[in-house]
């Protein structure tokens, strides 16, 4: 039987699932609720602070890691779920899911390096 290359796809999915489980609830709360609703954290997303965060190489790396792994996790899970829901044209679903995740990750790298 052919050697499977699923481990690389799956390990990125699992890594993304772990990262997302640890950091996304707090991140969503901060950027999507606390700051916009003015709950104690008005300055958290201030332009200068964000510029300083992204200007730091470690900050770039962490942000890229979170974006890339979360996107890959979502893409892989969505592809499997589309299969569960009876969407059998595997190639199209595969290209759409991994393609969007891949392009968005490249965009994230380009944007992060440009700052």
């Amino acid at each position: 039987m052919a050697k499977s290359n699923k481990p690389i796809v799956w390990s990125l999915f699992a890594g993304g699932g772990m990262i997302a489980a640890f950091v996304l609830p707090a991140m969503i709360f901060i950027t999507g609720l606390a700051v916009p609703m003015g709950l104690l954290l008005e300055n958290a997303l201030a332009y200068d602070r964000m510029l300083a965060l992204v200007g730091n190489p470690i900050g770039k790396l962490v942000l890229f890691g979170v974006i890339f792994l979360s996107l890959w996790h979502a893409a892989h899970r969505l592809r499997m779920t589309l299969h569960d829901l009876g969407i059998r044209s595997g190639r199209v679903a595969m290209l759409a899911c991994y393609g969007v995740a891949g392009l968005a990750s490249i965009a994230a790298a380009v944007v992060l390096l440009s700052i």
Binding site: G16, L51, L63, I67, H73, A74, R77, L78, A104
Partner: peptide
Amino acid sequence: ELTCLFIGAYALVILVGLFRL
């Protein structure tokens, strides 16, 4: 499984934010 829709969408929101930055 469908939690992935929100995980992915939020990652795209951060990406847009960085682009605007």
